[in-house]
Design a protein around this nucleic acid. Sequence first.
DNA 1: ACCTTGTGAATTTTT
DNA 2: TTCACAAGGT
Length: 671
Amino acid sequence: MNLTENELEEKKIQEKINKAIDSFENIKFDAGAGAGKTYALIESLKYILKTNVNRLESHNQYIMCITYTNIAKNEIVERLGNSSIIKVSTIHERLWSLIKDYQKQLVEIHPIKVKKELENLKNKLEIEKEFKVYRNFNNKNEFKNIIIENKDIFYSNIDKKSTPFKKEMKTFLNDNYNELLKSIGNFKKIVKTIYKIDNYQTCLDRIIKNHKKYQSIKYNSKYNSDILHKMLISHDTLIEYSLEIIKKYDLLKQIIIDTYPYILIDEYQDTDKKVIEIMSLLSEHSEKIKHNLFIGYFGDTAQNIYDKGVGNEIDEIHPNLKQIDKNFNRRSYKEIIDIINKIRKDHIQQVSIDNKTGGSVEFYYGEDKQSFIEKCKKDWNINRQNRLHCLVLTNKLVAEYSGFKNLYKQFSETDYYRKNFKQLKDELLSNNIMKLGKIQNLFYKIIKFKKDTENPKTPITEFLNTDKVDSNFTFTQLKEIINIFKSIQGNSLKEYIKSIFEQYEKCHNKDFKNIINELMNLEEDSSYQSFFNYLLNELFPNPDNEESNNKITNLLQINFKEYLNWYEFIKEEQDKEVEYHTYHGTKGKEYENVIIIMKNDFRGNDKKFSSFFKNIDNPKDEDIEEFNNTKNLLYVSSSRAKKNLRILYLDDISDFKEGIEKIFGQLKEYK
DNA sequence: ACCTTGTGAATTTTT
DNA sequence: TTCACAAGGT
């Protein structure tokens, strides 16, 4: 095989990495978008395995490879093939496996954090103005005892409006407490704070007393926040405790080093600073005890778009890393590469590996996004095989463009998601059905059922394939079920579900009932009303009035087309011409044709993009973090494109026109 | 003049 | 969950 000059150069870079591996010299490998970073990581893993397999095996040693996401982990495992020596996992999985057996030490660390949180809360009570009435209140102890006694009443009424809430509180608080109840907002804050303080104090007591349930820490990756007083920690605290415990115990450091003499970190720029600190500690310790340890960071600082990620601070936290760069791009046409080089404007300036030309980059300003998208579809001959990917800033917009605006809106306005907004993205928009919320999953199943029953090509076994249904059917029995399916009708989700229950209630076909029980996770003999109440209780944990009822009804009466659009979005149906994503969500992906819809503001910063372009040559010191974040976001989104890239800026650009032109060249107005 | 309440609009990602 | 604002109360 004849290698081109560039391919030879690429080989040389891998040899550099291999050399560093041989001499246990820690490296930071930077490779821009589409450079083949994962490829280099996998080649490195293979190299370590090839050259050390016997030694590692005989010493019970492993190669650690940690990633930021499960998706990345699975991709590496898939490309690597099976190996018992290489342990690929997410950062959190690995850290927990390293520390979870040191419960005694963890329970020593835990109270430090609890005490700190406790101090914070007490401090708030002393200082913040919401707590002023409480500070001036005489009988604090009595108040505390009463509200702790009535915790249930407090929480079951917490969503009520001021007047009814006050009325409920007055069932156990006499007139002495009127002053505290004056402002309901403050009252709720005060009470919640007192509950928390009490929880933490009880927890500390029980740890000291060696209470049964307080002798170990648990990590639950499914929860998004700590429940410290129940000894439950979540993601961030896992990292925090890992650092603490590794910092404190040299023996643990040695065990890790001796078990994993090779540690490779994927997408280091997204990795939490504390994890880098852990690596730095291990590296220091390995020198001290003279045991070999190789640490390799693989990533790209210009693609750091999350605040917690270490980004370019890595050199301060883990000094003396050998820098290896890979300045190739094997993804995009030359026209795209030129632009993304101008965005990052750093030491990584990519060269096209095959000099492919014929792509295009154009920057427009204008307002009519829909017709802009239509024009791009025409210009680029978009069809189901040659798809268009459109990037917008928020999930709300993704929902809107994908044709289920109201569905998103109504879910986001339920009490449950008002309180747990962060979960909405996963539970409504995840392509992974397992991640969908309970209600969304139920809706998904019902729509799938509708589609399947209406599609004559669906084999009847599709519906019978459950434990609950006896699969030995006669022809007549099958025919009866199919006839019942046919009689289910409805022009909205509400009508359709009502129709299902009409059949369910009036017919005596046991198998049909079982199919529906299975579909809806129902107990025997349910009704539309019980289904409705289920939705109500899930989405409005404390339903107190007609309003919650109406909101559920509205949710079920959204135009059916929106539900179908949503279903297709979740299923990632392959016959779509245009797909919508958030800028952030496209990380690691690549698409032939990309449109980026851009505007001034994002996330409370009303000048995010405008001030980026305005200050493109000399960003102000105080804004440098935000500036870099915007730059990286622009880099990540633009570098997804392989061939065609168009950006449409929705706001007035006259103030920062030159800034844009420095990167994208001549601007065009879109009318 | 100040406080309370209700409302509407915001909210990228992963574990 | 947080912020900003308007309306209404004291």
